[in-house]
Amino acid sequence: MNIVVLVKQVPDSGADRNLRNDDNTVDRGSANNVINEMDEYAIEEALKIKEAHGGEVTILTMGPDRATESIRKALSMGPDKAVHVVDDALHGSCAVATSKVLAAALGQLNADLVICGAESTDGRVQVMPHMIAERLGVAALTGARKLTVDGGTLTVERQTEEGYEVITAATPAVVSVWDTINEPRYPSFKGIMAAKKKPVQTLSLADLGVAPTEVGFDGATSAVVEHSKRPPRSGGAKITDEGEGGVKLVEFLATEKFV
């Protein structure tokens, strides 16, 4: 099975993150950039499928030059090769434009299965798998906590707030996964050493036949107009118990619709 895993480089969610003041985009320059956490689960799932059924795993990343670090790190876990879409004109691209670029790259990769994290820790909009599936005209099995492959049939347990749904689809398809699906492996030392020898193909917008005007700030269908830091948490309500503390607590919970 030919599997492509979408990997995004994001600022470390455990550290201080900022948007740039000049163009309201994510400040990648000052951040410690890492693989989007959920994507590590997607890589692990792809590797497990390859180990059970054979095939090839390719990492696909769209991002600036420095995303190479994350691509090498992804490859150290075991995938066979990577494709890096890098082009200065991509800066400021919206989700719609990003999905256009990724779908164009996927069009060259002939994937049976595209796996990605259910969301990125920076954008958190969860739309990419749906948009890509729509552009490719294939099924989108999103929010998976379990994925089973049986020949050309994929079965997914889709995590919902109430429980889970069982969905099946034929390949090719796009599957997005949550961190409940597996436990990503640590890269072995051999994996780390082998990663630097694995092929990484770089593609520009010209290689993909996408015009620069369709992406970046010019082609964006949405834009961040302004941003500000979340205000610090206020102290909250303090209830002094003068015999009616319990009642006041319940009243508070009722006001907040917890009870």
Partner: peptide, 9 residues
């Protein structure tokens, strides 16, 4: 970068 990755892992 390989030694850095080993450290992280």
């Amino acid at each position: 970068s390989e030694q850095d990755q080993l450290r992280d892992a």
